[in-house]
Each structure stands twice: as structure tokens, then as C-alpha cells.
């Protein structure tokens, strides 16, 4: 059996409400809440970045897996906000976790699906008997340009998954991917904020890839939507995953548990991974989980998980996503948010 042996997620404590952003740009918060189903989002502290988020989530994953970190043979962090343009994020992580030097490390980038790509590769390395354990992380401190619609969604957080063969808590039954060259969202070298193609990000980008990947995964697994207890889709806003679920034949109830975006925002590479983490926090042995990510550019990765008996042994060993989402919040006003996100030009 191959699959997830430990998982962990992390969200910063800071939040900003849709109202606080809308006020600054003369927008109507009610129409954003209604149209996009977004209410508030996480904001990273000045001392947080993709690396610190990845480290914290990974520490929780190691705690749940109960393994010696030195036995992890590969570490891949997927993010579109790696702190360095050139220099791997994972090298910091291996030192912080005490993984040692006998390990493969790389940073992945594929807009919002870099995390699930890292999960796929980690799974394959274990399956190929190349490594005993592989650690995959999706984490981001994503940026939206001031005044852009993305500002209401771009948030911070991440989830980490350790793949292995023993004491699996969620077996990976099937995987797939659907990828094409679709420039719906991008950030050029040296640019601070990403750009997007407006409504083109919807039907020809998000929905085309998520729905096609989802259909192919259902075919590959020979399963029907009603065979699943939970479904998780990439969550650029509250509305898109609901619509994708409907198109594929999943119910609101199936996506409810992993649908954390209205209060978390879009954690980009961490989006569907944190959604999966929220599901694993409450899943019962035997539950089946359907997951499809989406990364602009564009592509979707699909996974079918089957939760094992071991899940109940690990759920309480580290903080749960919903607890981090609902508790200990510190709200920021837009000025503080602009400072935290380094949107203000400072003197050196």
C-alpha cells in the first residue's frame, strides 16, 4: 500500500476581511461576498514566507507520521511565491527538520498546482522504491496587485504530505493529469504582481482543465461521483469549486468539508492541499476522497484517496486546519495589510 503516512497544514494567524479591502478601492463588499463567496483571507506575518509555512506544516506532518525525519529521501516544495527566484526553498526545510544531507530537494512551480505535482512525484518515488519516504509541500504567500480582484483571494498557507508504504493513513489509488498551454495567469520575471486574463481564467482555463481531469480520473478509476465521501477542488474563490463540482456530478455536501476558501482565501499551491488536509482531519476509515487541483498555465492533477484505519491514530497529533482557520485570528486593517504584504515602498 502506498500513500500518505503523515500530513500537516499551517495557516498564519493574521486575517483581512473583504470589507477592509473593498473600502479602499471603492468596491461593494456585498457583491464580492455574493459573487465570489469570499469573506476574509489569511495574511502572512512580516516574518513568514513560503519556507516558514512549509517548515511548520512539515513539522506537523512528521509528528503525525511518527517517523525519523532522517529517513525522508526527497523534499519537493511547490509554490508560486518561493522567497528566492534562484535558490531552493527546500534546503532551508531539510536543515530545520533535521532531515540530513542524504536527500533530493527541488522547488516546484506550476502556478497553483505546484503542490499537487510535488505530491505526485513524491508518491511515484516511493512507488518506484527510490526512497523510503518523500515529503511534498504546497505552500504560498500569494500576492494580488492592489485594487485587482485577486487581492480579495490571494492568501497564505500550506500543507505537507509524507508519502510512504507503511502505516499509510490515506492510500493513493489513482492519479492523473490534464495539461495544455493556456496562458490565463502569469507573472513575468522581475514583476512583483501576477497578471491574469480576466474572464478567460474561467471557462477556457479553470473549468476546462478541472472538468477534463476530473472526467478522466473518474474513467480511470471506474468510479462514480456517488462513490466518494469527499471531493476537493482547487479554490481560486468560493464559487468556482462549487461550479466544477456540479459539472462533474458532485454534491455540495461532498465538497463542504474541504471548501475552506471563503474564510481562508486562495492559498495557491496550498489551496487543494489544505482542503485535503481539512478532509483528512475528520475523515473516517474507508472514506474515499476525490481531488483535482488546478494551476494556471494550465493543468490539473487528479488523485483518488482511500482513507485507512490508521487515520484515527494521527488526526489529533497535530493542529487541525479548521481549528487554525477559526481560532486565534488577528485582524488587520488595509494599512497594516499593505505593510505586511510589503506593498509600501520603503527606504533601504
Amino acid at each position: 500500500m502506498i500513500g500518505i503516512i503523515g500530513y500537516g497544514s499551517y495557516l498564519p494567524r493574521y486575517r483581512i476581511k473583504v470589507e477592509s479591502i473593498a473600502k479602499e478601492w471603492g468596491s461593494d463588499p456585498e457583491s464580492i461576498k455574493r459573487g465570489l463567496k469570499l469573506f476574509e483571507k489569511t495574511v502572512p506575518g512580516l516574518d513568514e514566507d513560503t519556507i516558514t509555512i512549509a517548515v511548520q506544516a512539515s513539522k506537523y506532518a512528521v509528528k503525525r507520521a511518527g517517523i525519523n525525519p532522517e529517513e525522508i529521501g526527497a523534499v519537493y516544495i511547490g509554490s508560486e511565491s518561493h522567497p528566492y527566484a534562484v535558490k531552493p526553498s527546500g534546503t532551508v526545510l531539510i536543515e530545520a527538520l533535521g532531515i540530513g544531507n542524504d536527500v533530493h530537494v527541488a522547488s516546484y512551480e506550476f502556478a497553483c498546482k505546484a503542490g499537487t505535482e510535488a505530491m505526485f512525484v513524491a508518491y511515484c518515488l516511493v512507488k518506484a522504491n527510490e526512497v523510503k519516504y518523500a515529503l511534498a509541500i504546497g505552500a504560498d504567500t500569494s500576492q494580488g496587485a492592489p485594487g485587482d480582484a485577486l487581492e480579495y483571494s490571494a492568501s497564505a498557507g500550506g500543507a505537507a504530505f509524507i508519502m510512504g508504504k507503511e502505516n499509510v493513513v490515506a492510500e493513493i489509488l489513482f492519479t492523473n493529469s490534464f495539461t495544455s498551454d493556456t496562458p490565463d495567469f502569469w507573472r513575468r520575471e522581475h514583476e512583483f504582481y501576477p497578471r491574469h486574463a480576466g474572464r478567460f481564467t474561467g471557462e477556457p482555463a479553470y473549468f476546462k482543465h478541472v472538468v477534463n481531469a476530473g472526467k478522466l480520473l473518474l474513467e480511470k478509476s471506474a468510479m462514480k461521483p456517488e462513490d466518494f465521501d469527499y471531493a476537493v477542488f482547487h479554490m481560486p474563490n468560493g464559487k468556482f469549486p462549487q461550479m466544477a463540482a456540479k459539472k462533474l456530478g458532485f454534491t455540495k455536501e461532498q465538497i463542504e468539508t474541504g471548501w475552506i476558501v471563503p474564510w481562508m482565501g486562495n492559498t495557491y499551491s496550498g489551496s487543494s492541499p489544505t482542503g485535503l488536509s481539512a478532509v483528512l482531519d475528520v475523515a473516517k476509515p474507508g472514506d474515499k476522497i476525490f481531488m483535482v487541483s488546478f494551476g494556471s498555465g494550465a493543468g490539473s492533477d487528479g488523485f483518488v484517496f482511500k482513507v485507512t484505519d490508521k487515520i484515527v491514530d494521527v488526526q489529533d497529533k497535530a493542529p487541525k486546519l479548521r481549528d487554525m482557520l477559526d481560532n486565534n485570528k488577528i485582524y488587520l486593517d488595509y494599512g497594516e495589510y499593505a505593510k505586511f504584504r510589503e506593498k509600501i515602498i520603503l527606504n533601504e
Partner: peptide
């Protein structure tokens, strides 16, 4: 916890540590 402590200017390395 593990956090970023400081940056080595705008183009230098990020420096991490405990808080």
C-alpha cells in the same frame, strides 16, 4: 517556532531562526 528573522538588504539572503 521557525520564522524569518531578517533580510540581508533587498537583494541579499533571507535569514531564518527561532521566535
Amino acid at each position: 517556532i521557525f520564522r524569518k528573522i531578517r533580510d540581508e538588504g533587498v537583494s541579499g539572503i533571507h535569514c531564518y531562526g527561532y521566535k
